[in-house]
Simulated scan of single mutants.
Amino acid sequence: MATEHAAINPSNRPELFTVRQVAELANVCERTVYRMIEDGQLRAVRVRNSLRISRAALRETFGIGGEA
């Protein structure tokens, strides 16, 4: 079963983004996002077994993320 994915638009998304979503928004690979988190360049929180990046962290690091 194929599912369609809407384009990610930071202004209509939740406050927390997955690593994959951040990579797509910032036009970098997922490994780059993980590396930035590990190096302290990008703030993230752990939710169970995954990392989430806040809209505020997107704005601070990449200048993207829409309005608060």
Rank of each mutant, 00 (worst) to 15 (best):
M1Y: 05
M1R: 12
T3G: 15
T3R: 15
E4V: 11
H5V: 00
H5T: 00
A6Y: 01
A7S: 04
A7H: 11
I8H: 09
I8P: 08
N9C: 11
P10C: 09
S11D: 13
N12M: 12
P14S: 15
P14Q: 12
E15C: 00
E15M: 13
L16S: 08
F17Q: 11
F17A: 09
T18M: 13
V19A: 03
V19H: 11
V19P: 13
Q21F: 06
A23S: 05
A23E: 03
E24Y: 00
L25N: 09
L25A: 09
A26I: 00
A26R: 02
N27D: 06
N27G: 04
V28P: 01
V28S: 05
V28R: 03
C29I: 10
E30D: 08
E30A: 00
T32V: 10
V33Y: 07
V33L: 01
V33H: 01
V33E: 05
V33C: 03
Y34D: 11
R35N: 10
R35T: 10
I37A: 00
I37F: 03
E38L: 09
E38K: 14
E38P: 09
D39C: 07
D39T: 07
D39W: 11
G40W: 02
G40D: 02
L42W: 06
L42D: 00
R43K: 10
R43W: 02
R43H: 02
R43I: 03
A44Y: 07
A44W: 09
V45F: 10
V45E: 14
R46S: 15
R46G: 12
V47H: 10
V47W: 04
V47P: 09
V47G: 07
R48G: 12
N49Q: 11
N49C: 08
N49H: 02
R52K: 14
S54C: 01
R55K: 14
A56Y: 08
A56F: 08
A57N: 11
A57F: 00
L58M: 14
E60N: 14
T61K: 14
F62R: 01
I64M: 15
G65P: 10
G66T: 05
E67S: 13
